[in-house]
């Protein structure tokens, strides 16, 4: 799931300062689950913007809505009338959604209300953490199901660095050293021998360093 976080209100305020008719458009999928861009947050942000304007003695009109997913054109199409009707769209979707809107409505200014943070999971209610960096070349089979690329601060592939102390990463005592976790888990699985395999230098081409990635499945394309 893509986890997002709403931008600071100051920043949003600045972005929309010259507009008086705004569509705040949420996305009801990933970012809704991380309480950043669902309908619930749309209403709250809209209310704050209105209050802010009222304090400045200015009028503003806000349209509040959300699409099921902003990363699919079919869903975006359903709000065409609303988009046409406003000066600007403040999207509470992830970066994908914002760009999808921009692509579908080339004449409209689309603003991001969120910072798209990472791909992760809900640890518990209100706590999310990163799990995958989308590197395009999964090695979880070799690392006991824990990803050193996403979860090691240095992205090391061949064991921990010298900063691993008591199972914690040197950047903060709150952060687990993922290599410690990997070793613990492999030991529990009786697969410690996997650590003896040396990772060659990683091919970062498939990680985006080779340009914008695209996947084409010929059998599915029409």
């Amino acid at each position: 799931m893509i986890v997002g976080q709403q931008k600071d209100f100051e920043e949003i305020k600045k972005m929309i300062s010259s507009y008086n008719r705004i569509l705040v458009l949420g996305c009801q999928t990933c970012v809704a689950v991380s309480f950043a861009g669902g309908m619930r947050e749309v209403e709250i942000l809209a209310s704050m913007i209105r209050m802010d304007r009222k304090m400045a003695g200015q009028d503003i009109e806000i349209i509040e809505d959300a699409t099921l997913r902003q990363c699919d054109f079919e869903f975006i199409d359903s709000v065409e009338n609303l988009v046409d009707d406003c000066d600007v769209v403040l999207s509470l979707a992830c970066g994908v959604g914002v760009q999808a809107l921009a692509e579908r409505y080339p004449d409209k200014v689309i603003l991001p209300g969120l910072n798209t943070s990472f791909m992760g999971l809900t640890e518990k209610m209100g706590v999310w953490s990163e799990r995958c960096a989308g590197c395009g070349n999964c090695i979880l089979d070799k690392t006991g199901g824990l990803c050193p690329i996403a979860r090691c601060s240095k992205g090391l592939l061949n064991g921990p660095c010298g900063g691993s102390m008591d199972g914690k990463c040197e950047i903060s005592s709150d952060v687990d050293c993922v290599w410690q976790l990997i070793i613990d888990r492999l030991r529990a699985l009786n697969q410690l021998e996997k650590l003896e395999e040396i990772f060659p230098i990683k091919d970062w081409d498939v990680s985006g360093h080779g340009g914008t990635r695209k996947i084409i499945r010929e059998d599915l394309t029409a």
Binding site: R40, E43, I44, S47, M48, R50, M51, K54
Partner: peptide, 11 residues
């Protein structure tokens, strides 16, 4: 009582 209820009351 949600955030929205409180904000709307003030608004």
């Amino acid at each position: 009582v949600g955030t929205i209820h409180i904000l709307k009351a003030l608004e």
